[in-house]
């Protein structure tokens, strides 16, 4: 027959085992997989971040289907400008290699606003080495055109000096204006 004292000791040991085991089980349940592989965080989160879908393509992905625009764009001074900045994201236009929706094309006053985002002289912070700027409406007055003209009436938006250089060639007026 087991003494009363032994029963108590056995009970204490048993309850410690049960509680510790339960604690370990709960801990194993609560700590996510891959936690602690590289540090105190879930290492799988790195892969999840890496698997996020890409929404912006590159200019080359646009040129795949738009060779005509590509030819003009790559010859002009605007060749470093991203297609997607003016025309919106690649992913909104193409899905699984198929066209899903049309992208907006800027028109009229919108174009002038877009041009002046970079080419406005009034914003003094622009280095002349990086970009040519103009003041509006002074530029229109200097060029003797109506004040209602939008930029794209003289400048091709993809290659800004295209028409101007062509016109100079035809008229023989080759001297550069500062």
């Amino acid at each position: 027959m087991i003494s009363k004292h032994s029963v108590r000791i056995i009970l204490v040991v048993l309850s410690v085992v049960v509680m510790a085991g339960g604690g370990l089980l709960v801990k194993a349940q609560l700590i996510p997989k891959s936690f602690g592989l590289y540090g105190s965080y879930r290492a799988d989160a790195i892969e999840e971040e890496a698997q996020k879908v890409v929404r912006h393509g590159t200019n080359k992905s646009c040129f795949e289907c738009h060779p005509y625009e590509a030819k003009i764009h790559l010859q002009g001074d605007h060749k470093t400008i991203s297609c997607e900045f003016c025309h919106s994201t690649y992913a909104d236009h193409v899905s699984n290699g198929k066209r899903t929706a049309a992208l907006p094309v800027k028109k009229g006053e919108e174009i002038t606003t877009l041009c002046l985002r970079c080419h406005n002289t009034e914003i003094k912070a622009r280095s002349t080495i990086v970009i040519k700027t103009v003041g509006m409406p002074d530029h229109l007055k200097q060029q003797n055109v109506k004040l209602t003209h939008t930029c794209n009436q003289c400048h091709h938006v993809h290659a800004p000096l295209k028409y101007i250089n062509e016109a100079k060639k035809i008229t023989g007026l080759m001297e550069e204006k500062p």
């Binding site: 698997q51 879908v53 929404r55 393509g57 080359k60 795949e64 992913a91 899905s95 699984n96 198929k98």
Partner: peptide
Amino acid sequence: EFQNGISPSDANVKLPEE
């Protein structure tokens, strides 16, 4: 949020390596 994107496994999409 990310439904509408270019799938990385998509062979049709040409994204040159940069």
